[in-house]
Simulated assay, not measured.
Amino acid sequence: MVASITFDDETLGACEALVKACRASGVTVGTAESCTGGLVAAAVTAIPGSSEALRGGVVSYAIPVKHEVLGVSDSILKAPGVGAVSSECAAAMAEGARRVLGCDVAVSVTGIAGPGGEEPGKPVGTVWMGVATPHGTRTFPNLFEGGRARVRAQAVRRALELLAQGVRESAERG
């Protein structure tokens, strides 16, 4: 059976607004995704004309991809209490996506969607996100509730909010 991806009206509306803002400002975006597995990029590409906004995305589900493609350092990935689900990793992923994709603004998503995978201090639903712009990088912790699908859907919506914020800031600051 082939599964199809569908997004709710709120998510598609956020994507339409993002694409419109990118087209109006000339700002491009990209993604570095782990637990969302490319869903952020997929949501954006559901919008006609998104090729003017989205440069691409890196699905860095595996640790070696985070390291080898996005440039997340071993000192982050192997550090006790830090690792792939951390502020440090989210920042490095977003910065790596900006570099690799050649975009103005990049968002990263790394977390534990469940049902397993929790670690001490990092329950299921823990998702770190980063946004990198020409003006710097910021990270944001999130704790989403629900099962795997709900955690991932909430992460997609939050990532779209962060991209939109980054586009606005980049357009305003030039």
Results as ranks from 00 to 15, higher is better:
residue 4 S to Q: 14
residue 5 I to H: 13
residue 9 D to V: 14
residue 9 D to H: 14
residue 12 L to G: 10
residue 14 A to R: 15
residue 15 C to A: 13
residue 16 E to S: 15
residue 18 L to G: 09
residue 19 V to A: 08
residue 19 V to P: 07
residue 20 K to Y: 12
residue 20 K to I: 11
residue 25 S to R: 12
residue 25 S to V: 13
residue 26 G to S: 10
residue 30 G to I: 06
residue 38 G to C: 05
residue 38 G to L: 03
residue 41 A to S: 15
residue 45 T to Y: 11
residue 48 P to Y: 13
residue 49 G to C: 11
residue 55 R to F: 11
residue 56 G to C: 09
residue 59 V to R: 11
residue 62 A to M: 13
residue 65 V to F: 08
residue 67 H to T: 12
residue 69 V to S: 07
residue 71 G to T: 06
residue 75 S to C: 11
residue 77 L to M: 07
residue 78 K to T: 14
residue 78 K to W: 12
residue 90 A to P: 02
residue 94 A to V: 02
residue 94 A to R: 01
residue 95 E to D: 13
residue 95 E to W: 08
residue 96 G to I: 05
residue 99 R to H: 12
residue 102 G to V: 04
residue 105 V to I: 06
residue 110 T to L: 00
residue 111 G to N: 01
residue 114 G to V: 04
residue 122 K to F: 02
residue 125 G to D: 02
residue 126 T to M: 00
residue 130 G to K: 00
residue 133 T to S: 14
residue 138 R to Q: 10
residue 148 R to P: 09
residue 155 A to N: 00
residue 156 V to D: 01
residue 156 V to H: 03
residue 160 L to P: 08
residue 162 L to Y: 08
residue 162 L to V: 02
residue 163 L to T: 05
residue 164 A to K: 09
residue 165 Q to D: 15
residue 166 G to C: 04
residue 166 G to T: 01
residue 170 S to W: 06
residue 173 R to K: 14
residue 173 R to T: 12
